[in-house]
Amino acid sequence: MADEFMKGLALFCLGGFGWLTFAGWYRTPSFYDISQLFADPRAAESVYDEIGILAGDVFFWLMIIGAVTFWVLVPATREIRSSLAEDTAN
């Protein structure tokens, strides 16, 4: 179980750091606004801006889905699988 926790934590940290980086670049209109990191991204002026905005969204969902997968879904499927194996053994 510790390896699933570490995999989820690694994906959570990697996704979080990537999201913070790209959100700081593309979603922070001013450092004095309250809506930092969650503001609408500014208009993309080049292909690199589009890639940066997309990468920020990808890192955000990697953070959420990666942690949920390894902290909730993998242990739940193992528990279900072991309980079903015990039921068929009895």
Score class of each variant (00 low, 15 high):
residue 73 L to Q: 06
residue 35 S to Y: 03
residue 13 C to F: 14
residue 16 G to F: 01
residue 9 L to C: 05
residue 72 V to A: 13
residue 60 F to S: 03
residue 18 G to V: 04
residue 39 A to C: 08
residue 63 M to F: 11
residue 90 N to A: 10
residue 10 A to D: 06
residue 54 L to A: 15
residue 19 W to Y: 15
residue 58 V to D: 02
residue 29 P to F: 04
residue 44 A to V: 09
residue 55 A to Q: 05
residue 48 Y to T: 12
residue 40 D to S: 13
residue 21 T to L: 15
residue 79 E to Q: 13
residue 22 F to Y: 15
residue 60 F to H: 07
residue 5 F to V: 08
residue 9 L to F: 14
residue 40 D to T: 10
residue 49 D to S: 08
residue 54 L to F: 14
residue 72 V to M: 12
residue 20 L to F: 12
residue 8 G to H: 01
residue 38 F to S: 10
residue 76 A to D: 08
residue 76 A to E: 09
residue 84 L to K: 11
residue 59 F to K: 02
residue 63 M to D: 02
residue 58 V to N: 05
residue 78 R to H: 13
residue 75 P to E: 04
residue 63 M to V: 05
residue 44 A to Y: 06
residue 36 Q to E: 05
residue 15 G to C: 04
residue 46 S to D: 13
residue 23 A to H: 03
residue 53 I to N: 05
residue 37 L to C: 05
residue 73 L to S: 07
residue 64 I to G: 03
residue 74 V to C: 04
residue 1 M to F: 14
residue 70 F to G: 01
residue 57 D to V: 06
residue 14 L to Y: 08
residue 36 Q to C: 07
residue 3 D to F: 10
residue 7 K to M: 09
residue 54 L to Y: 08
residue 72 V to P: 02
residue 25 W to M: 10
residue 80 I to G: 08
residue 61 W to G: 04
residue 29 P to K: 11
residue 86 E to P: 01
residue 84 L to H: 11
residue 56 G to A: 09
residue 90 N to M: 05
residue 48 Y to E: 14
residue 47 V to Y: 13
residue 62 L to R: 02
residue 32 Y to S: 03
residue 30 S to H: 09
residue 40 D to M: 11
residue 60 F to C: 07
residue 32 Y to I: 00
residue 17 F to V: 14
residue 17 F to C: 13
residue 82 S to L: 10
residue 85 A to D: 12
residue 11 L to W: 04
residue 86 E to G: 06
residue 41 P to G: 06
residue 56 G to L: 02
residue 8 G to W: 00
residue 20 L to N: 04
residue 13 C to D: 07
residue 48 Y to V: 10
residue 55 A to Y: 03
residue 49 D to E: 12
residue 83 S to M: 10
residue 13 C to M: 15
residue 59 F to H: 05
